[in-house]
Write a protein that binds this DNA or RNA. Sequence first.
DNA 1: TTCTTTGCAAATCGTTTGCAGCATG
DNA 2: CATGCTGCAAACGATTTGCAAAGAA
Lengths: 141, 141
Amino acid sequence: MQRIEALVQRVRAQGGKVTAQRMLIWRALEGDQTHPTAEDLYARLKPVLPGLSLATLYNALNELVEWGEVRRFDAGDGHIHYDPDCSAHAELVCLKCHTIIDAPQEVAPQPAIPDEIAGYRILARSEQYFGICPACRAARA
Amino acid sequence: MQRIEALVQRVRAQGGKVTAQRMLIWRALEGDQTHPTAEDLYARLKPVLPGLSLATLYNALNELVEWGEVRRFDAGDGHIHYDPDCSAHAELVCLKCHTIIDAPQEVAPQPAIPDEIAGYRILARSEQYFGICPACRAARA
DNA sequence: TTCTTTGCAAATCGTTTGCAGCATG
DNA sequence: CATGCTGCAAACGATTTGCAAAGAA
């Protein structure tokens, strides 16, 4: 995710309004590394801005995804997770318990995201390794 | 996805049954490169086995995902897509129209999937590049 | 026969939508 | 003051679940 200043400009340039809700959501996402779901964010933000509606949160999240500012991904737990980090990094996702952690650096040795591939203007990249986490391996099956 | 023979053994080893439905679903998935959704598959299989139920299809798909035989991913269109190819390859996903195509070879230069990362037993890998496809770029916004 | 899986239909629940009121530019 | 955004609640729709019947081992 770019810095918030840039988002403010983007919205204004499109004739949109910079509202308290958007700012709040952007700030909450900025630098977040917990791969939150919409519900996670809602639980976190509702106390701060009690009037906040889930619909508004979804609106803001969808905008960010369309702009390539935030990445959505399915961890296989039936919930959509959001990650403001669109740079080249990988996640480890457990197929059993759906835990998500960032993979160690050495796993994603391709730091640069090409601007364009096959005519697509590339805005974000997602990479995940699916497997069985140590805890689930220990628990066997 | 491994070959079907191996799946048959896997199910039997777990004390499961090799049913006509599972076989049908496995065969349909084998080598499929269209990134189908559950509905896509259902539409394709229902005529072949009219009694087939969506619930059964979901069961089979979820099994395959848990086994690391099939990869699920969210293309941002509100539908879950399945891909039996768990080897190292990337997809291009359009953030506007949600088209999905396989990326050209040269984009995924890391062919090998490590067996283990940070204690996780790795079964599958997913990589996606999100952006704006040529058609949507032409259409502007 | 025994135990798993299927099929049906209802239930679930995350996400989207419609619309009136409000706030931003 | 004009438009776009919010909040609410209802609508939606994909996926899951419960249970009786069917089928594999």
